[in-house]
Write a protein that binds this DNA or RNA. Structure first.
Lengths: 208, 208
DNA sequence: AACTGTGAAGTTTTTCACAGCC
DNA sequence: GGCTGTGAAAAACTTCACAGTT
């Protein structure tokens, strides 16, 4: 099997790129054109060597003696992360969490457009979340397949999450952001990220 | 300086304990009394050696030949993570995210009780989120100090987050769950965890 | 027979430190 | 002088493999 760049870049480094991008956008808004790795590091609480190494996996974006052009770095990182385009995303589950996600405006500016919201509860189906009308999970497969959706966010109760995951994966979804408090079993090629605020809180209470 | 157990346990291992606890609760609900590390590993997508090593930092909870008693392990992990008590938590920011957090019922069962919600916007102050009345950020300091709050969740816009962090830390807060898309600069003794769904999404699009 | 707890080996990730460039 | 890009060293983390226990 040919070894591509994707196999060689540590996943943990990839995970930091969005943080760099986020910081750079802010820095750019503050009118800064050029930034050195140690300055960027200060913004992020990360060492400068780490930043240089992470960026060097993707090519020499910097200028010695000067630093990195903020605009170029934003452009390059956006391309690397494939967020120089807009991804259509579906949300499954229109409870508290699903509703908050669907109403949150921040996604669009950063490369994601929430196009569909699904729920199985008759009371919720047909209601509006912003511009979007909540659809029945009965039409989940039809919609996902027709529009070739690759990314979904799961915001259903723990007991239903695995089954929803199986269904969306069968439709070609290969990236899942899971808010349900449970580990999902998926094929290797499917990426999953987890958000559970209580897990975050509990890993802090240990130190209190 | 004396080297305590807290200095010796890898932070990354501590971060996994809440996942173990979460899985164990589910396993217990399904009526299972005893579980082996490799079974627990299957539930979590983690190797059995990892689990045994993580648990062994805190003492021998298991029985050779048998596995771990689910009830005992839950009890022990809850104690280690200090979630065998209920923590009072304040939420700052009553926008979309703050509202979703405040309404989410899942916190209470897992050791956290949201007691206060603050916002600076006059339209929101005085409205109810479940049982809680949104208070003005003007009384933030008074409330936090009086009740000796140690944990807050920050759900304000990026531009206000650092200033809110500074204020709550001055009141004795030492654990922050930050939903604002920005790194917070805090003293060493303060723990911060970050949740930004877009960061999670962007680290998956790299692979698509 | 089955499983834990754990040193030791192996792997990954971070940090150092410096040559090379602006 | 200041900064990047990068091998090499150090540290952190994971996996192996097996002695010891039930």
């Amino acid at each position: 099997m040919p070894e591509t760049i994707k196999d060689v870049v540590p996943q943990i480094a990839v995970g930091r790129l969005p943080l760099y991008l986020r910081a750079l956008r802010r820095i750019q808004q503050q009118g800064c054109d050029v930034i050195a790795s140690h300055e960027l590091g200060k913004h992020l609480g990360i060492g400068s060597a780490q930043i240089r190494k992470d960026l060097s996996y993707f090519g020499g974006f910097g200028k010695q003696g000067t630093g990195y052009s903020v605009a170029i770095l934003i452009e390059q990182l956006s391309a690397v992360l494939a967020v120089d385009q807009t991804w259509s995303v579906a949300v499954i589950g229109a409870g508290n969490i699903g509703t908050a996600i669907s109403k949150y405006e921040g996604f669009t500016q950063r490369g994601f457009h929430i196009c569909w919201v699904f729920d199985s509860h008759p009371d919720v189906i047909g209601t509006r979340m912003g511009d979007i009308v909540v659809q029945s999970t009965e039409v989940l497969e039809r919609t996902l397949c027709r529009h070739k959706i690759q990314i979904v966010m799961i915001a259903v109760p723990a007991g239903e999450a695995q089954q929803i995951a199986d269904r969306v994966i069968a439709c070609g979804v290969c990236a899942i952001l899971n808010y349900a408090p449970i580990h999902l079993h998926v094929p290797d090629y499917v990426k999953v990220q987890y958000i559970d605020p209580i897990v975050h809180l509990q890993s802090m209470t240990y130190y209190l």
